[in-house]
Design a protein around this nucleic acid. Structure first.
Length: 552
RNA sequence: GGCUCUAUGGUCAAGCGGUUAAGACUCCGCCCUCUCACGGCGGCUACUCGGGUUCGAAUCCCGAUAGAGUCACCA
């Protein structure tokens, strides 16, 4: 077989040589140790937490080392393309603080290693496919779907590994004339890698590969023996081929991807080998897991787990900093410790390492996210919180946008109890925050809880409120204010201290806590709230009196 | 089924041959307290199993088991 001739027959239109591309995309001039990473989403427009998790690793690795982080659109599967997906991807990631230095953007590429959209790199892939054919390392395959299915059936009968390899790779042995004839007849074909592997050999003769993974250490697995498709019938490459060609030409140093790629690693290694290139450092991250109905761990799925879509967190109004902080705690096991030691440091000061990444899949834990979010929000000023909330409301709750009419008012509300030595941690996510403070706005204020049973039983509700109003002085300080409540409690037969009531429940109708709860319900519509005095100060005297009077 | 990865409490996890097996979240109790939250204190709950190696194993080796991933002209 004259491979040179075959290559020309298959790729007559490819005139550029591999050397041309090597010259077009020379090694990057970067400082020693700088890492080049990439995110290669397929443009389905759907990103979930798992993608963000991986993107974080890429971003940290690159930016921590003074390297480059770029975006490459992997749209070799035309069936999956969704209009506007690139924009969604970029915006979603930006929202969570992940920015690219180079690559695809909403209006064209930036950077000199493009094109950054795989569907526009056809000639490049074909050039390297041509090279492989010319060297006898790849070949055209005319097997139809039916024929492949047939082979598969046979293999299953014989209990052999399914696939096109060794003796099953019929088109390996086609002569030049046969290929030419097929092509003239217009038969569709793919280009397959001609693998050197042979897994049907005795076990001790099977070639194995050893790859250093930055997260998992040495990976030891059988070398590939499948004649994997590298160019589809359309001339578009498969992921495997595109990955190898792109990451070489774009000079990627570290490939971060999910562990689901581990099984195809041998293919990639063989491709790098056959192309004569040095493979990048692989970082196979653990999968983010979810508990399924049966209580088993399961990989996050795009289809089944829409609540793990990034949009869910934006909808709920989780602050991006909180999501980042949470992700970092599951990304690097020593982050939490570092955070305790450096409570006020910027998250980017943490030195992220692949070695500290877990190799087993972590279960997503909403409790933990919430807990972390409380601490993160505490460090955000009321002013910034206002801006964040307003942006969120504008997008997801336009009907409540009037809450933001009075900036100073809302900021005071958001700051309730946050300035103390042991600050309140009421805020978790926007949705929850808005619900929490709704009583500050007359149109949303409603009585949600009942008055305490102890007071209702004694028929004292109105009496308490009347006495409270009579003695109410808006200028009282907190201490004076509460002393008055104690007095009212005592006058009506309630214990001034809950402990007294607990000791002798028969001697009282209730305790001062019940009395103040009456005021809470009247003022906030709830039995539970932050400090009443502080709330009254914010509500103002007029509104406070009005709300109390409604019950008299 | 083949190949691969993983295996410490409910969850996330330290641990690298000698520890009373850290810590965080959740849950429960107590304290603080006018409610809630915060905070403090305490508690429940763990090395998947079986063989080795060793004076000694959560840690090293082998095997089993379980869970996960993957086996496309999808990524």
């Amino acid at each position: 077989m004259d491979y040179e001739k075959l290559a020309e027959l298959l790729f007559p239109h490819i005139t550029r040589t591999p050397e041309d591309y090597e010259a077009m995309y020379p090694p990057r001039q970067l400082p020693e140790g700088a890492k080049v990473t990439r995110l290669g989403p397929s443009p389905t427009g759907f990103i979930h937490l798992g993608n963000l998790y991986g993107a974080f690793v890429d971003e940290r690795l690159a930016h921590q080392s003074g390297g480059v982080f770029y975006l490459r659109i992997e749209d070799t599967d035309d069936k999956r393309f969704v209009e506007g997906a690139v924009e969604i991807i970029i915006n979603s990631l930006r929202f969570f603080g992940i920015n690219f230095d180079e690559g695809a953007t909403m209006d064209g590429d930036t950077g000199s290693y493009g094109d950054y959209t795989q569907s526009r790199r056809g000639e490049i892939y074909q050039c390297f496919a041509k090279k492989l054919v010319r060297e006898g390392k790849a070949y055209p395959c005319f097997l139809t779907e039916e024929e492949i299915a047939e082979i598969r059936c046979k293999q299953e009968e014989m209990k052999l590994t399914p696939g096109i390899y060794c003796q099953f790779a019929k088109c390996r042995s086609l002569t030049y004339e046969q290929v030419e004839e097929n092509i003239k007849a217009g038969k569709p074909y793919v280009v397959r890698l001609k693998s050197d592997g042979n897994m049907s050999l005795p076990e001790d003769q099977i070639k194995r590969i050893h790859v250093q993974d930055a997260i998992r250490g040495t990976l030891d697995m059988p070398a590939n023996d499948q004649d994997t498709v590298i160019l589809k019938a359309t001339g578009i490459p498969t992921y495997h081929f595109a990955h190898v060609v792109d990451d070489h030409l774009m000079r990627t140093t570290h490939v971060v991807r999910g562990a689901e790629w581990l099984p195809s690693l041998p293919i990639h290694i063989e491709l790098f080998e056959k192309l004569g290139w040095e493979p990048p450092v692989y970082c196979h991250t653990a999968q983010l897991m979810k508990l399924d109905e049966e209580g088993n761990k399961r990989k996050l799925s795009k289809r089944k787990d829409p609540e793990l879509s990034l949009d869910y967190y934006r909808n709920q109004g989780y602050h991006p900093a909180a999501v980042r902080e949470y992700l970092m705690t599951i990304l690097n096991s020593n982050f939490e410790e570092w955070r305790i030691a450096n409570p006020d440091a910027d998250i980017d000061e943490f030195e992220f390492t692949t070695e500290k990444m877990s190799t087993s899949g972590a279960l997503f834990d909403l409790n933990k996210l919430n807990d972390i979010s409380k601490d993160v929000l505490l460090k955000i000023s009321a002013s910034d919180l206002y801006d964040f909330l307003k942006g969120w409301a504008a997008e997801f709750r336009p009907e409540i946008i009037h809450m933001f009419d009075d900036r100073a008012y809302l900021e005071r509300i958001l700051d309730i109890g946050r300035k103390e030595a042991k600050p309140r941690k009421d805020h978790i996510y926007a949705q929850q925050m808005v619900d929490n403070i709704s009583y500050f706005f007359d149109d949303m204020f409603k009585i949600e809880d009942s008055f305490p049973a102890e007071v209702e039983a004694a028929g004292d509700t109105a009496a308490i409120l009347r006495k409270y109003l009579e003695t109410y002085d808006h200028s009282d300080d907190q201490e004076t204010w509460f002393a008055k409540i104690r007095t009212i409690a005592q006058e009506l037969g309630y214990a001034a201290k809950p402990k007294d009531y607990k000791k002798n429940p028969d001697q009282y109708k209730g305790h001062v806590g019940h009395v103040s709860t009456v005021i809470r319900v009247a003022l906030m519509g709830r039995q539970q709230s932050p400090d009443v005095w502080e709330i009254q100060q914010i509500l103002g005297e007029k509104r406070t009196r009005e709300r109390l009077e409604r019950f008299i």
